[in-house]
Nucleic acid binder design. Sequence first.
DNA 1: TTTTGTAATATTGTATACAATTCTGGATTG
DNA 2: CAATCCAGAATTGTATACAATATTACAAAA
Lengths: 243, 243
Amino acid sequence: MPSRSLSQLDRALRGLRSLVLSGEYVGGQRLSEVAMAAQLGLSRTPLRQAMDRLVAEGLLERIETGGCRVASFTKDDISDAIEMRGVIEGTAARLAAERGVDAALLAQAGAILDRIDQALAAPDGLDFDRYVTQNAAFHDLLAKFPNSPIVAREIQRMSLLPLASPSAFLSDQAMIPDFQESLRYAQRQHRAILEAVTAGEGARAEALTREHARLALINFNHLNKSRPMLTRNVPGLALVASD
Amino acid sequence: MPSRSLSQLDRALRGLRSLVLSGEYVGGQRLSEVAMAAQLGLSRTPLRQAMDRLVAEGLLERIETGGCRVASFTKDDISDAIEMRGVIEGTAARLAAERGVDAALLAQAGAILDRIDQALAAPDGLDFDRYVTQNAAFHDLLAKFPNSPIVAREIQRMSLLPLASPSAFLSDQAMIPDFQESLRYAQRQHRAILEAVTAGEGARAEALTREHARLALINFNHLNKSRPMLTRNVPGLALVASD
DNA sequence: TTTTGTAATATTGTATACAATTCTGGATTG
DNA sequence: CAATCCAGAATTGTATACAATATTACAAAA
């Protein structure tokens, strides 16, 4: 049976995370546990578990006197989060290059990049959904290259911060100028990363992967210029102070 | 009143973490919540909160069918954790160099390094306690250099993994050959890191900091050679499979 | 008018009770 | 003898009740 009945904790996590990212509760006000539990239709126990977890993820922050509030991020925070993801993914790429990667994984990565190429060569210029899916798959796979649970964990963790994940800015292409060109550039970087890893070129793999992450930074900056109208569309953007 | 009465959750966290690190519950067996709660003298509620947190830290791992067990680490895991700490601390150093650091912080760091020098020049050859304290202070301060909550958080998080913190191997000097010499080498690296940061030399600061972390790796390898007798003395070492 | 104290209220932190699973052991069957 | 199934026991997941703490509103005093 593939569809296990979701636990209350899972429901609380999904519901709470989505509510928080929507920006509805932004403003530093304390989240009321009873109200939230009622809204989500569960008891305080799993809700509090979910809150603890979101605090650990950084989406919520504790209030000294009790309870928690939605965290708020500066633009610099997002910038740092993206940089950190690049650093950690870059480390994965470097370690992979230095230690070698299972041939099956490399082949799998190559196949993913082929599919991205196909997405970029679609009849109407771009199969966007396919690009998004396969891009996420490539990054997931890269995290597994070094065969290190520690490294994989840290990558996954960084990707939880709002707007720091490799797919964070792929839902809002419309607002990003020359965005198809940007996707093609990103794909060339993908190829170069895989090539460097395969060739055992650690420094190159690391540098390329860092630079690749910085595409997200560019997109973030574009996004900020047409901010107000997007705040409600881009999940997590509402948590970024407009300063 | 400086001594606030500890919350039950705090007590649960301390007690559970110390029990887990002691290695008493190693072996993949599920931790019984009722037994553990009884042993710590509190109810299941704060204990379960503490367990959730230790799972997030990586000290415990969930069991699919419910509950959790003490995590077990390979030597490679420890090695990777140390490497990752080096990478992240290295990023802090690089960013600090690139962005500039508040003069007061730099002065404070210099003062700490002076005190480490004093500890190394003590009458009986070494004021060990002072070295440990000031070394930890230097690393804490370095984490604050880039003035980035995101970076600071990640450093703190990596330091929670067993044997990955900057002070992890400073309690067991006895077993490490030439350990005084090793401390002096580490202190030279401290100086060089601070110099690079001050001079805005990002690449140098990053490389030095990474290399500095690898001292921990050397110590870990030494430790592994005289393993059995130390397993009970070094907190966290019991979680590392002897393979 | 502002500040301070205080009681009432509301909210979180903790313990316990209940429900739903999972685990164990042994009997049964092939 | 091995594998399977089932009941009973034990354990976790969830809800609720209770206790401790923080917040609020209002009154009194400077």
